[in-house]
Design a protein around this nucleic acid. Structure first.
Lengths: 273, 273
DNA sequence: AGACCAAATATGGTCAGACCATACATCCTG
DNA sequence: CAGGATGTATGGTCTGACCATATTTGGTCT
C-alpha cells in the first residue's frame, strides 16, 4: 500500500541524479526555454563538482525524455540545446513495454479508440463554435480588450483555430493520398497522417504526442489489418464520414464514425473481447 | 512535411545507441522477461566491443524508460534487472515539458477529463456485464472449453474482473479517507487514490500509467483547487455519485458524474476557455 | 555440527585523463 | 576581398583506476 520502491529506497542520490536535479532547477529558475543552450559538459562538471561522465549520463536522460539534443562542433547550434520532443520518449516507452509484455495490444488499441473518439468530438465542437464566431469576429475586435492577458488569450485562441483548420485540411489531403496509394504500407502511411491530423484538430499537444506514439507502435499491426481486409473502400468511407462530421461541427456523429471505423479495423478488440 | 529530424539526420549511430539496439534485440529474441538479469556492465562492454561508459549510458536510458533497475553488490538481485515501471518516465516527461511550457495545464486537465470519463464509462460497463455473467458462470464452466487459448482468456478475464472489484472497493475506501482528512493535502492524497482506483477499475494498465503521471503533475494544482473551494462536500457528493454509477453499471451516469466533478474542480478549464 | 566473523569477490558508481571527430572561428595568404 | 589553412570549443569514446555495497566463501571458535 506504500510506495513499492523496491530498489534504491533511501540510498544517497547518485551523482547524475544531482546533475539532473540542478539542471531542472536551473531551467525553471533561469527561465530557459526551447533553443537555449546548457553549459558544456566539462564546464557543467566543474560547476557541480562531479565527473564529466556523470554529467553525460544526466544529459543522456534528458535527451531520452526529449528535453535536450546534443550536437558536436562549434557555434550557436553546438552543445546541449533545450528542445521539446516528447514524442520519441513515448514511442520508445510503448515499444519497450510492449516487448516486455507489460502492455498488451488490446490496451493500446483501446487507448487509441478513447483518444480518437475524444479528439473527433472535440474537433467538431471547436469547428462549430469557430463557424458561429467567425461572423462576429470583427465586432469582437472593435470591443475594448481590457488586459494583456485577454489579448494574449484571444491571440492564442485564434492560433489554435487556424491550426485546427489546417489540420482538417490535412485530413482531406490524407484521404486523397490514401485513394492514390498503391500498396498497404503506403496506405497506412497516409492513414497515420489522417489520424494524426485528427488528433491535431483537437488542439491538444499532449494528446497529439500520445497519439503519435500509439500509431508508431501499431504501424505493423495496421498494415496487417489492411492486408486482411483487402478492400480499403470501407475504411475510406469511414474517413470521409469522420472528416465531414468534423467540418459540420457534429460531435456526436464524429465520435460515432470513429468508433465504427476502429471496430472495422480491429474487429477482435471490442470492449468485451 | 518530412521527419523534421533537425539534429543527427544521418550521422552514424553513437556507441550507446548500438548497445541500446542490441539489448532490445536480445530482450525480444531471448524471451527475457521482468526479473531476468542483463550481463554485467564490463561483460556487456566486452561482448559489444564498446567502452563501459557507453554501456552505462545505454543502461541509463533503459532505466529512465523504466525497463531496468540497477543494484550494486552481489547476488541474484544485483546488476541490471529487467523491470516494468513506465510510470516514472511518464511523470518525468510531463513535469519537464510543463516546465518548458511545451504543455499547458489546460492540455493536461483536458486529457485527464478525457481519461476519467472513458474509465468511468468503461468500468461501469465492465461491472454491468460482470453482474449479468455472475449467475451464469457455473453453467459456462460446465460447458466444454475447446482450446487452451480460450481457457487462458477466460482466466485473464476473471482476473480482470477481480481486479476491477478490488478497485471499486478502493474507491469506497478513498471516499471514507477523504471524509476523515484534516487538511487539503491529505484530502488530495486520498482524492488521487480515488481517481487512480477509478482508472484501475477500467482494466487498462496504459491508462493507469498515464493517469498516475497526470495526477502527479497536477498535485499542487489540486491542493490549490481544494483550498479555493473551501468546502469539500460537493466534491465528495460527486465521488459518491461516480462510485455508485459504476457499481450500478450505468456508464452514462458515470461519465456524466465525472464531467460534472471535474467542472467543479477546475471551473476555468472548460472546452472553450 | 553449528554459529559467527573475516576475507574474497562481483557488481555498480565515480572520476581523471587522454584521444578522436566535428564544425565553426580565426587568421593568413594571394 | 576571396579562399584556404589553422585554431579551438564541443561532444563521443575508451582506458584504467579506485570506491561503495552486498553477497559468497571459508575459516575459526565454541
Amino acid at each position: 500500500m506504500t510506495t513499492d520502491e523496491r530498489r534504491r529506497p533511501d540510498a544517497r542520490p547518485r551523482a547524475f541524479e544531482e546533475v539532473l536535479a540542478r539542471s531542472e532547477e536551473r531551467i525553471g529558475a533561469d527561465g530557459l526555454t526551447v533553443g537555449d543552450r546548457l553549459p558544456g559538459e566539462r564546464q557543467l562538471a566543474e560547476q557541480l563538482g562531479v565527473g564529466r561522465s556523470s554529467v553525460r549520463e544526466a544529459l543522456r536522460v534528458l535527451e531520452t525524455l526529449g528535453v535536450v539534443a546534443s550536437q558536436a562542433g562549434r557555434g550557436p547550434d553546438a552543445g546541449a540545446v533545450l528542445t521539446s520532443r516528447p514524442g520519441n520518449a513515448l514511442t520508445d516507452l510503448l515499444r519497450l513495454h510492449l516487448g516486455l509484455a507489460t502492455l498488451s495490444m488490446r490496451e493500446v488499441i483501446d487507448t487509441r479508440l478513447m483518444i480518437e473518439q475524444w479528439a473527433a468530438a472535440r474537433a467538431a465542437t471547436a469547428n462549430a463554435t469557430a463557424n458561429a464566431a467567425a461572423p462576429a469576429r470583427t465586432a469582437a475586435q472593435t470591443a475594448a480588450q481590457t488586459t494583456e492577458a485577454q489579448a494574449a488569450e484571444a491571440q492564442a485562441a485564434e492560433a489554435r483555430t487556424a491550426e485546427a483548420e489546417t489540420a482538417t485540411a490535412r485530413m482531406a489531403e490524407a484521404v486523397a493520398a490514401m485513394d492514390a496509394a498503391r500498396d498497404p504500407a503506403e496506405f497506412v502511411k497516409h492513414d497515420i497522417a489522417f489520424h494524426l491530423a485528427l488528433a491535431e484538430a483537437a488542439g491538444n499537444r499532449l494528446i497529439v504526442a500520445v497519439m503519435r506514439a500509439l500509431r508508431d507502435a501499431l504501424r505493423r499491426y495496421a498494415v496487417d489489418a489492411v492486408v486482411r481486409l483487402g478492400d480499403t473502400g470501407g475504411l475510406q468511407d469511414d474517413h470521409r464520414r469522420i472528416h465531414r462530421a468534423i467540418e459540420d461541427g457534429d460531435s456526436v456523429a464524429a465520435a460515432a464514425a470513429v468508433a465504427e471505423h476502429l471496430a472495422r479495423a480491429y474487429p477482435d478488440s471490442g470492449p468485451d473481447s
